[in-house]
Write a protein that binds this DNA or RNA. Sequence first.
DNA 1: TGAATGATGTTT
DNA 2: AACATCATTCAT
Length: 156
Amino acid sequence: MEVEAYVGPHDPACHAYGHRRTPRTEQLYGPPGTAYVYFTYGMHWCLNAVTETDGYPAAVLIRALEPLTGIETMRRRRGDAPDRQLCAGPARLCQALGVTGALNGASLQRGSLRIVRGAPAARRAGTVAVGPRVGITRAVDWPLRFYLKESPWVSR
DNA sequence: TGAATGATGTTT
DNA sequence: AACATCATTCAT
């Protein structure tokens, strides 16, 4: 399990830095519990869960997950990549789960893809490590990457 | 095991 | 020109 926080207009690495409200960042301003999905590097989708209050642009980038069910489907979507890399990385995870821009703005509490309290992976024992966010060039020293230290399913 | 690089398209 | 990435290639 691995996530990164992007925390509003004062976070230089956030897409909404300086209150940049554009068509792309629109869903980032939406209500908490919805999806912010963006396209990057010409070929990849990345999934965020919108947080904070409606109108405040903050979200959590889902960077890695432990695959528990639907492994075969994930393998097919990921082109038979090693199981360790099925969901290790924000774009890989989107491939494995079939996430595309079509999910942008959708609810992550009620839809077919949803975040549930008390899921098996959430009960994994272990240390939550904190460190710098990956792949950014600004605010590199903000420790906003959180991951399960012992997990073999995280990126990098 | 690690560094370099090409793919590919949207946003600034 | 940069970009919240990844897979492949080439070098140790």
